[in-house]
Amino acid sequence: MVEGYSPRKEGKQMKRYYLAYGSNLNVTQMRFRCPTARVVGTAVIEDYELLFKGSKSGSYLTIEPKEGAKVPVAVWSVEEEDEAALDRYEGFPTFYYKKEMQIVVTGIKSKKERLRDAFVYIMHEDRPFGIPTWNYVQTCITGYNTFKFDQSLLMNAIRKSRKELGI
């Protein structure tokens, strides 16, 4: 699928699936930013790890390939307007780019597993490691608690940044 492409069917907008692993796990924040987005399930991105990277203005979560690592994600159904709002928030395409992937989604209510095409935002890999603000980490922790994800993945990402930065 083409980056940024929003498919349409018979003049109707089709929903796309978005994989959230950072601050967009925060349901309250997502309802504000993307009012028509709906959580449809959770999934795990295999062979990727969480990292805190960024710029002089701040450090944020991203994912990068790492064999054997796993990143839990919430899966959101988004409409075209939601995706446009996410593009703005994520600084697409300058700060983050989009990657399309197929992923097994476990439904929130049914717990049924389905293979879905989805997109995820990934920060450009040349960005330096950094230490996030406590406020950003708290926003992510709120999301991790909502979806019952293992918070140690966030703490490990902070430890890795500290190690890379010699702190």
Rank of each mutant, 00 (worst) to 15 (best):
L153R: 09
L19E: 05
T42M: 03
K163T: 15
C34H: 02
G41E: 07
T139A: 13
S55A: 10
G107T: 08
Y89L: 12
P7N: 07
Y18N: 05
T142G: 05
Y17V: 04
P132C: 05
K109G: 02
D126W: 14
K148G: 00
V78K: 10
G58M: 03
V73L: 02
G68V: 10
V78H: 10
E80A: 09
G130A: 09
H124G: 11
I131C: 09
P65T: 10
R88Y: 09
K53M: 13
I108Y: 03
V27P: 00
V78F: 08
Y48I: 05
R127I: 03
M1A: 12
L50I: 00
L19F: 03
A85K: 10
M14E: 14
F147N: 03
W134K: 09
M30F: 01
Y136S: 02
T94M: 08
S77L: 12
A84L: 11
L153D: 03
K148T: 01
M14L: 13
G11T: 06
M1R: 06
E3S: 12
V39P: 01
K15H: 09
K53P: 07
L61Y: 04
P128C: 09
R88H: 09
G41P: 13
G143R: 00
H124D: 13
R159P: 00
Q102Y: 07
E81T: 12
K70M: 03
T28R: 15
M30T: 00
R16T: 07
E3P: 10
L25C: 06
P93I: 03
T139R: 12
Y89P: 05
C34Q: 01
Q13D: 14
Y18D: 05
T133C: 01
E67S: 06
P93E: 11
K111V: 03
K53W: 07
F32P: 00
W76S: 00
A118K: 09
L61Q: 03
L51I: 14
K9G: 04
S110C: 07
T146H: 14
K56T: 11
M14A: 08
T94Q: 09
Y18V: 04
G166V: 10
V39S: 01
G22R: 04
C34V: 00
P35A: 09
E83A: 13
D47P: 05
Y121K: 02
R33T: 13
R114T: 15
A157R: 04
L154N: 00
A85C: 08
E100R: 14
F52R: 02
V40G: 02
V104A: 08
K112E: 15
S6Y: 13
P65S: 10
V39F: 00
F119W: 10
M155K: 13
P128M: 08
E49W: 04
F119Y: 15
R159Q: 14
G68Y: 06
D126G: 12
